[in-house]
Simulated assay, not measured.
Amino acid sequence: MKRQTFIIIFACSSFLLIFSLLLFTSRSDDQMSTKKYTTETSENALEEPEEDIIKISYDGEQFPIAETPEVSESVQQYEEQIEKHAVSYEVEDYSNLIMALMMQESEGKGEDPMQASESLCGEVGCIDEPSQSIKQGVYYFSEVLKQANDDVKLALQSYNFGNGFIAYVKENGGTYTKKLAIRYSQKMFNNLKESGNYACRTPEEAELNACYGDFNYVGEILKYFE
């Protein structure tokens, strides 16, 4: 009887020992598998980071302004100069946008391809060398971007209107809208039309009596990213 009891106890003990070993092995395999998966996932995340694409919303559309715009060869020839000055003035994320800006201003033609004379000396024609134009144009864009608190659309429109538009927007809601651009154009044209320096270029401008600058300047630049 004692022998039978001993055998039963020994068998149960052996079974429990074997079961414990199997359970420990299974858990170890699961931990190794989880660790391997975590490591592989981390490595894949490092190898394939998500691309940070800067986009601007305008009239219900999204425009990827970090991509290369559709511009003329005349503008493309100045790409390196634009990038160099964009780095200097800490707006390198917007170098492609500045290329589109040049395209809208002059298509890369002339001695002042950024049309930056007025921002430098207050009148047209004081810049007669493309390299000076590009440096001044990029600098002026960086300044209006700062003044606009990184509101890119406000900065673009202010490149066309002048930085007085920034103050106007801050007094009227604080954020760029096309309606504000139209209202500012109307206001300025009404004040300056007797000077003879401003005229309506399109039927829409004439109908709205908004002939100061180009109130659709933002849209005109973003079209190069379509």
Score class of each variant (00 low, 15 high):
E47Q: 14
E105F: 05
L46V: 11
T38H: 08
G164E: 12
F165H: 02
V138E: 06
I7K: 11
L120G: 00
Y89G: 01
M99N: 03
L222E: 09
S72E: 04
V169S: 05
S74E: 15
S57I: 13
E107R: 13
N209E: 15
E70M: 09
Y139A: 00
S88Y: 11
V87L: 11
E40D: 14
K146W: 02
T38N: 14
G110K: 07
C121D: 12
K187M: 15
D112A: 06
S42K: 14
E92N: 12
Y58Q: 02
L16A: 12
T68I: 14
V144M: 04
N191M: 13
M99A: 05
P69F: 09
M32G: 05
Q104P: 03
G173C: 05
V87W: 07
E194R: 08
K179M: 06
I56T: 05
G122C: 10
P130G: 02
V71W: 06
V91N: 02
Q115N: 12
F10L: 15
G110Q: 09
Y217P: 00
K84A: 12
S158R: 08
E51M: 12
F215K: 01
Q104H: 02
V152S: 09
G219R: 04
S28P: 00
A86I: 06
A100V: 02
E67Y: 13
G60N: 08
S14E: 04
L101F: 10
S158L: 04
S42N: 13
Q31C: 01
G122R: 09
L222P: 03
S20K: 12
Q62N: 12
E194P: 03
C200F: 08
M1S: 14
G110C: 06
L192T: 09
